[in-house]
Nucleic acid binder design. Structure first.
Lengths: 222, 222
DNA sequence: GTCTATACGGCGATAGAC
DNA sequence: GTCTATCGCCGTATAGAC
């Protein structure tokens, strides 16, 4: 795998390895792993058919690399946001607010989805796709579960007395709603007659945070 | 398309057309449209490679037929459940309860997913897959939107004064949570250490109804 | 090392022969 | 209603150009 090492690039100008990753990201996010051919990726990236395999060993290796690239960035952002929320609450001598936890969980995704970089928007769709199929469950687990456990622990702190089972089911629903928002299928636009816009990530995620903050707190009040 | 007409079959014994549909349903639900080959479908159904194309014109036609077959059944069930809830409330001279509406929306899905018929369980996963990708948004729209509009209207009645935008976003989150539950990826099982089981549909959907009933009502109380 | 051109065995959907 | 033949595209290995 020595060809797969990250080659530092002089500021800004992307190397061909990144061009391949970008093209693969876009195509995989639109049509899934099986719906994309290595030839299409190569063509979109403007490179030879054999180059993706040279860098990533196989189509599957390419898929993994695409998924991994931004997972690391996203995990760091979310983890940092959570740490900030936890320590600011500690400093104030208060319990962390559920809303702050959910915001730490969701804001980095919201920013990714409303980013100017189309790569981030594609990546959000890709994660949604991966999270919706049992075939790729292992990828979600290995890249995201550690972080998720950290958030669940924080929520348990914020909601003393909550039953673990209720907590996990609530998280399941949160992640379902989040996943559909990331999938950005445009369906809510049509259903709502343009009242709600998948493209308006800040609006979508503001509603998401509010709705689930009330939802989580509500569990403990019943 | 005369070959595609439904040929009535003597009680119970499925014709080859249905064998093809069943096999396609299982495979498509596991690996998506592009991840399945017509040859695999034919082999699983125990028929010649060309038979699926004979019945359904193309691979895409087969996919549509699989999706349509149970959509009709599910739509009828959900619509009937909603009508029952609406008319029983009317008879009692009361407003419909949010919970009854959500139950009408969700119970038929829950029964499908916990059915003895593996075909229904496969179908739930297929719908989840289709609903998670922009590529298939049109299929969701054409098969389900009429029914969804009916549910949204009912919810508007049950929640007087709710802003349409809030209502649609709440529906979006509901359907996201529902979709992930239907996808049955097994991830919540692992995350929760076995406390929550995707296989236990009644438990999953009971939590779903409770959580979202509170969520919808809560919108109007803030 | 980085990359291209090309070749290969295999499987894809499906049209047309039967 | 069934099967077979066809043709194109698939992922990937490899040889060698730069």
């Amino acid at each position: 795998m020595k060809a797969a090492k990250t080659k530092p690039q002089k500021a800004g100008i992307p190397g061909r390895r990144d061009l391949v990753l970008d093209a693969a990201e876009e195509l995989f996010s639109q049509r899934g792993f099986y719906g994309v051919t290595v030839r299409q990726v190569a063509e979109m990236a403007g490179v030879d058919v054999a180059l993706p395999n040279y860098y990533f060993d196989s189509k599957r290796g390419l898929f993994d690399a695409v998924f991994l690239r931004r997972a690391e960035v996203l995990n760091t952002q979310r983890s940092d946001c959570l740490d900030a929320a936890l320590s600011s609450a500690e400093k104030a001598g208060e319990r962390v607010a559920v809303k702050d936890i959910l915001q730490a969980f969701i804001t980095p995704v919201m920013e990714a989805q409303s980013s100017h970089d189309p790569g981030w928007r594609n990546y959000c769709r890709l994660v949604a796709e991966v999270n919706s199929s049992a075939v790729w469950a292992g990828m979600m687990t290995s890249h995201f579960d550690a972080l998720i456990a950290k958030f669940i622990d924080a929520l348990r702190l914020a909601l003393p007395g909550i039953k673990d089972k209720d907590l996990y089911w609530a998280y399941h629903m949160l992640t379902g709603a989040l996943t559909l928002t990331m999938a950005d299928t445009g369906r809510i636009d049509r259903l709502s007659g343009g009242l709600c816009l998948s493209g308006d990530a800040p609006d979508a995620y503001a509603h998401l945070v509010d709705f689930f903050t009330r939802g989580f707190i509500g569990i403990n009040e019943t």
